[in-house]
Nucleic acid binder design. Structure first.
Lengths: 196, 196
DNA sequence: AACCGCATCGGCCGAACGGCCGATCTCTAA
DNA sequence: TTAGAGATCGGCCGTTCGGCCGATGCGGTT
């Protein structure tokens, strides 16, 4: 009712379970599919994988609507190919905006879920960081290349410096991070978000 | 005007530059601060770091509003402590919802920005996976330890096998993943989610 | 019984790595 | 002006890595 009241939105079908959702979606080819996580026969995440998962040629735009905001559902849904994740307490405004966003190829996620996503995305500042002794910009350059699997020779070539310089920087990095080999540098880089 | 028309929102100040934004925010202690990226004197990201950056004791809720949706601005803003990121073409509805979400401690990000964030967050499934030749369980054991920075000797000790066995497994892993050194194994492990 | 994938082990060797020493140059701050 | 931090470079040396050969045993499948 909420959606159908919008002039730019038309509800073309409403189904009772996941299997029917897949069937009707393929028949009607709607611009957007609204799915609940909890559905009979086929799970909402399963349906998402079928309709929009990796490897699907003409993926549907899927918005997950659910009352459960557990992290495992969120990540599972987004990994399955969902372009939206709404909690049922989000109110009609966000529901409408989520559908419009999905139709445009964008994604709207519930604010209470987004705030947790951002903690994992943009705030990877963590404990093993060199709090007492931060890395210099140049050392970070070396870290980023090391973390991608470059050898010292390749790092030297890409930074236009000599092999000795790279090894010197590496020594400083080892001391500052308190690690013993380049793979631990890579692990630190991935954990702290220096590379992604 | 848009915000003040809402019954649950009151605009308490409007400033002309970043320095004034910091001063007024500290004086009025608003529930939410709306900041533009482009501001005289103090950059919007600078203001965000001062008001909501890591290490601030009573952080403000900051929503960035801008016309520029470059990735560097988005990540910079969110890393600086912003709890929202809106493009100016988002329409009044999302602006209002973003303020409400920020006041509640949540975060609303423009759908067109969110869709790019999700690609980096929830889609770490990537090409270099061994599609044609999956790793065995034992090889995955080795991969996990290597990715954490263990030397071959340490891997051997933790798996109760000899150094030769570890090196043999490593050879297989190199061939299957198509990589040339252990750091690339670590990078693959972090990207594909084998370790986290 | 024969085959094959997997795990296990050994030896050899060149290349890469990492530690340790010292050195010069530039820029900034005291 | 002096002191310090950062970036740059070189040499030496022991350890680790990674490639390449081979080998054994074990559990499945044909």
């Amino acid at each position: 009712m909420i959606l159908d009241a919008q002039p730019d939105i038309e509800v073309v079908a409403a189904v009772a379970d996941g299997a029917e959702a897949v069937a009707q979606a393929r028949r009607l080819r709607p611009d957007v599919c609204l799915l609940d996580i909890r559905m009979p026969k086929l799970d909402g995440l399963e349906v998402t994988r079928v309709l929009a998962g990796p490897g699907v040629e003409n993926p549907f735009r899927v918005v997950i609507v659910t009352t459960f905001d557990l992290d495992e559902y969120v990540y599972g849904a987004l990994r399955s190919g969902a372009t939206g994740f709404l909690l049922k307490d989000s109110g009609p405004t966000l529901l409408i905006e989520a559908v419009r966003a999905a139709a445009a190829g964008d994604a709207l996620v519930s604010p209470s879920v987004t705030v947790r996503l951002l903690q994992h995305v943009a705030q990877p500042r963590r404990a093993p960081a060199p709090v007492n002794d931060p890395l210099t910009d140049r050392e970070l350059d070396v870290v980023r290349l090391i973390a991608r699997g470059r050898t010292n020779q390749e790092v030297a070539a890409e930074l236009f410096v000599s092999l000795s310089t790279v090894k010197t920087h590496l020594g400083s990095i080892f001391a500052k991070l308190g690690v013993r080999n380049r793979v631990e540098i890579a692990a630190w880089a991935w954990e702290s978000g220096v590379v992604s």
